[in-house]
Structure formats: structure tokens, C-alpha cells
Simulated scan of single mutants.
Amino acid sequence: MSENYTYILKCGDGSLYTGWTNHLEERVAAHQSGHGAKYTRGRGPVELVYYETFGTKEEAMGREYAIKRMSRKDKLRLIASGKGLS
């Protein structure tokens, strides 16, 4: 079983981007090089500030959706909790 991740990036302009992947390091590198999501292109450099690990793609996608619906204040609180990065 592969691991799946929901992650939050802080972009160079201070905005936050939330996504999911099953190859976290490679996906962050893709965002960093401008080959990630359209949103992060031109907003680099990006910094991985939070992630969670899940057993299934569906769980990771569901969490991504939930985080995207959060206010910026709640996302910052989640990031500050430090639970995601280890």
C-alpha cells in the first residue's frame, strides 16, 4: 500500500496552496520548478509547511477538500499546530 499525502505550501507571495499527492518530495520539487499546479507557477519559491499522511487516495483527496474550505486563519492555525511536519 502506498502512502498518500495532503499538503500545504506557502508561496513566495505569502499565499497558501493545498494539494494531494502520492509522491510528496517529487510533487514539491515540481511546484518549485514551475511544473506543479497552475496556481503555484510564478508564485515561487514555495515552502512545504504542512502535510498529513493517509492510506488511500480518497482519504487524502477528502482532506484536501476539507482544508481548501477552511479560512486562511484556520489554515494558519493548522500549520502552527506543528502536527503535520515531523
Rank of each mutant, 00 (worst) to 15 (best):
S2F: 01
E3A: 11
E3Q: 14
E3I: 09
N4A: 01
Y5V: 13
T6V: 03
K10A: 03
C11S: 03
S15W: 12
Y17V: 07
T18K: 11
T21G: 03
T21Q: 03
T21D: 09
N22Y: 11
H23Y: 15
L24F: 05
L24M: 09
L24W: 03
E25C: 06
E25R: 15
E26Q: 14
R27N: 14
V28E: 01
A29I: 02
A30C: 10
H31R: 13
H31S: 08
S33N: 04
S33G: 04
G34W: 13
H35R: 15
G36N: 03
K38L: 07
K38M: 06
T40Y: 05
T40R: 01
R41Y: 15
G42Y: 15
G42A: 05
R43F: 11
P45C: 02
E47V: 14
L48I: 01
T53H: 12
G55N: 01
T56G: 13
E59S: 13
A60P: 10
M61F: 14
M61S: 10
M61H: 15
G62A: 02
G62R: 04
R63T: 06
E64M: 02
E64W: 12
Y65N: 00
A66M: 10
A66D: 13
I67A: 00
I67R: 06
K68E: 04
M70K: 11
K73Q: 15
K75M: 12
K75C: 12
L76T: 01
L76W: 12
L76S: 00
R77H: 11
L78T: 13
I79V: 11
I79E: 04
A80F: 06
S81Q: 07
G84D: 09
L85Q: 06
